[in-house]
Structure formats: structure tokens, C-alpha cells
Design a protein around this nucleic acid. Structure first.
Lengths: 235, 235
DNA sequence: CATTGTGTCTCATATGTTGAAACAAAGCAA
DNA sequence: TTGCTTTGTTTCAACATATGAGACACAATG
């Protein structure tokens, strides 16, 4: 998903050290704990560079090292808890779990960040077989996937696009093999008490299981979950 | 609290750009949304430097800019959700809120990170009057405050210290004007299902309200909250 | 209307970061 | 058990990056 060097998904910002550090953090977010060697392989950084950056991240509490393996640090826990939208994530998480149980697919919550979207909560399908896995913190484009389409459709300035108008009329979006080959998904908008778009709730899985029109089966459940999240927001 | 330049609380790690970026993020975590001018004042950075770093953080989704004000970005939401300990924070938050209601004081959850502690959840006292405010993500020393003492007392290697042995015997710690002038606090250990120390739960407030022995009044409630968090962890 | 403050951009230069090389220790296969 | 490979850590010369003074446009203020 993320990689060092691609601005579209947060790769190159003009501050090289930051780009590398974020590359390391997103590697750990996506792949779980890793040794120094694993971080070197996963990021392509030179070994002493990765070592120095990891030590610095550890000094700041953004990374923790235990038994020779690095993982995301508890300072990110605190910052995540204080970031705008943390209460949305808190109320959404059990709803995503229930939606996962009902649809038997993975579910996610996306929020818009400028011209991209960020996965702020992810609950994966249980049991065996194929599953879609989106790591929390992953940055994805708006232009691909049903989640991106929903975040675009209910934005200011979307009025002129007939495709997005159709999405708004329907109240949800579906996509097949857009964000990722082999994956189909359905998304619905989550509105805040003020009526503004807050997030997109999404269920996703492999095309062979969901078919070429995943919305037929899942749209009702996904829209229902969005309504449920909205209800929990006003309590 | 945090400031650029002090290694003890995550200031200088040997990677200057990272130190500055973390300084900005912790300023936003502690003080809430800020303009560029506010970030310049708060961090002491030169204006073009702060501008460039904020733009880079925004490109990575770590900071969001809205109406000329910067705040923590939603990527931190995702990473915080995936960091080790996020489930602990999730179950602890309502317990901290209940403890805040019972004690009528602010409450926090701290985890140990190397030789410091991080506030991973914070619920502030409601209503008027004095309140202790610890921002989520704040990095504090272990050697000061009841929360630090608890994290030390139940650590490996604490056996030789009679003061920590007394804390262990009692099952909680109290402090007066240690972490901060005018603040008293009481903390208790939170253990994981494996019996290992996971966190410290803490209630804190002004000395005039809590007195020179805050444990007399609050210890029972704090210890009870710790047991409650432990119970929620095994469900 | 004049002054001050803010946000944004440029660029010469100083500084910080880089990564090859070296070293020690651990792991592994024969 | 030995020899080789891999991993983690440190050093430091070279160079690429980041810095911040200065400039500019615009907004805010008295």
C-alpha cells in the first residue's frame, strides 16, 4: 500500500527525513512488529539509516522495541485518542464489528483528508478463506473504490458530476476491482449531527464471493450500519 | 510539558527534523488546533520551517488544516487504533469516565515506554473550578508522580527499593506536588490476563481539594477502577 | 490610511543526514 | 565444531537536505 516515494499516498512531502519516518511507521502499522532487518527490507532504507530513525522514533515514544522487534509506540495511542474524530471511531468500532458479522466480510471506516482518504478503523472478516485487509492508518486515493466515491459524492463541488449524482440518489456506492484487483466493496456515507459528511462506512471482500454487483446483497446492511453510527453520535 | 530540546520527554533524539515534527505534533495534541502563528510561538521554530514541516505533516495525513488552523490528522487515528494497547484504551475509557464521575476529579491511564510513561487516555473533570489536565500522548517521567511510581513499583528490578516495596504492599501510590506544583494524585496498577503490569490508572486534582493524603479518600475508588479494567480485558 | 501581523515562497549556505565500511555477536548449515 | 552469513551497532567523510533571512502579498487593526 504505502511506500516511500509516492506523494499520492503520502510518500514524498518535501521533507525527506519525515518521508522516511512515516514510511517506517506505516510499514509497522500495516505489517505488525518487525526486526530491524524486516524494516530495512520493507522500506528499502540503508541499514544505518533505518537504525537511526527507529532509535529516534523510539526516543519519541512513536515506536516501541521489545525482544528485538519494533512496533507502533503508545504515544500514537494517546495522539490517536486526542485526534479529531476519535469519538467517531469509538462509536463506530462496535458497529463495524456487527456489520462484519452480518456481512461475513471485512469492514472499514474512512475519513477524507484533503484529496485522499484514511482508514481510521478496520475490522477483518473472521475465519478462513479470502479476506480484504486494510490496515488502520492506510492512506488511499479518493478516485478508486466505493469508499472514495462516497467521500467525493457528498462533498462540496460534486454537483456537476453525473456519476456522483447517481451515487447520491442511490445513497450508497459499489465498486469492483477499483482499489485493488479482485476486491469488491460497498460504502455508505456517515453524516454528523450538523448534517455534514463525516465518514464512509464500507464492507469489502473478494469478487468471487460478492459478485459483480455487491450492492445487491450488502447495500442495505451497510446503509443501516451508517445510520446506526449516526445514531450513536448524537447520544 | 513537552518541548523541543529536552530528551527526557522526547525532545532530542539525534534526528533534528523528527524532533521538530514531534514537537509540532505534541503541541497540537496538548493545546488543540492552532494557526501557523500559534505553532511558531508554541514551538519556537522559524516561520518558514514551521510552514514547511506542517505542509509535510499534512501531506502525510498526520496533521489536518481547516480554516487556517492545524490539528492532529486522521492518520494518527488509524495508527493509534492499531497500536499495541489500543484494546486496553478502548476498555479503559468508560471506566476512567466512571471514576472521574465518582471522584469528581480528572483521571488518566498511563503506560510505560522505556524509562518514561505515556498518557494514553485522559478524562477531565467536568464543571468549573481547578482541574488537572494531562493531554493524551503526553510523555512524563517515571520518577515523579503516583502514576510513575506505580509503573516502577511493579517492574522487574524494583525489589531492592524499600519505598517501592511499600507501594506494592499497599497496592497503590499517592503523590503530592511531584509531577506538577499544586497537584495531588492517586494511582493503582492494571494487570493483564497474564499477570504482567499493563498500565496505571490515576485520579488527580488540586491539593487544596484532595489534601496531603489523597489516598485516604480516593485509593479505594482507584483500585476498584483498576480491577474493573482488568475484568473488561478478559472478556 | 499607515502600520503590524500572517501566510507563503525563494535560495545561499550551513548543518544534518546519509550510507559505506568496519566491527561484534548471533544464527545457521555442513 | 567450524566457517560463513546475517543482524545489530557505530563511525565519519561526503554531500544532499533543511534552514531561516528576506521578500512579497494580503489581512487585520488602530
Amino acid at each position: 500500500m504505502d511506500s516511500i516515494g509516492d506523494t499520492r499516498v503520502g510518500g514524498k512531502s518535501g521533507v525527506g527525513v519525515l518521508d522516511k519516518a512515516v514510511g517506517i511507521l506505516s510499514l509497522l502499522a500495516e505489517g505488525g512488529p518487525a526486526t530491524l532487518a524486516g524494516v530495512v527490507r520493507g522500506t528499502g532504507l540503508a541499514r544505518p539509516t533505518a537504525y537511526r530513525l527507529l532509535s529516534a522514533l523510539e526516543a519519541h515514544g512513536l515506536v516501541a522495541r521489545e525482544d528485538g522487534r519494533y512496533s507502533l509506540g503508545s504515544r500514537l495511542l494517546g495522539w490517536g485518542g486526542g485526534a479529531v474524530g476519535s469519538s467517531l471511531v469509538e462509536v463506530a468500532r462496535p458497529v463495524l464489528a456487527a456489520l462484519r458479522d452480518r456481512t461475513k466480510e471485512s469492514t472499514q471506516l474512512y475519513v477524507r483528508e484533503g484529496d485522499r482518504r484514511v482508514c481510521v478503523a478496520s475490522v477483518e472478516r473472521m475465519g478462513g478463506g479470502l479476506r480484504d485487509a486494510v490496515p488502520e492508518g492506510a492512506v488511499l486515493p479518493l478516485g478508486q473504490g466505493s469508499g472514495g466515491r462516497v467521500l467525493l459524492a457528498w462533498s462540496e463541488g460534486a454537483e456537476g458530476d453525473p456519476d456522483l449524482a447517481e451515487t447520491r440518489a442511490r445513497g450508497w456506492a459499489e465498486s469492483v476491482a477499483e482499489r485493488e484487483v479482485g476486491v469488491a466493496s460497498v460504502s455508505a456515507p456517515v453524516f454528523g449531527p450538523d448534517g455534514g459528511l463525516r465518514a464512509a462506512v464500507c464492507a469489502s471482500g473478494p469478487i468471487p464471493r460478492l459478485g459483480e454487483h455487491p450492492g445487491e446483497r450488502l447495500a442495505g446492511l451497510v446503509v443501516e450500519a451508517a445510520r446506526e453510527i449516526e445514531g450513536a453520535l448524537v447520544r
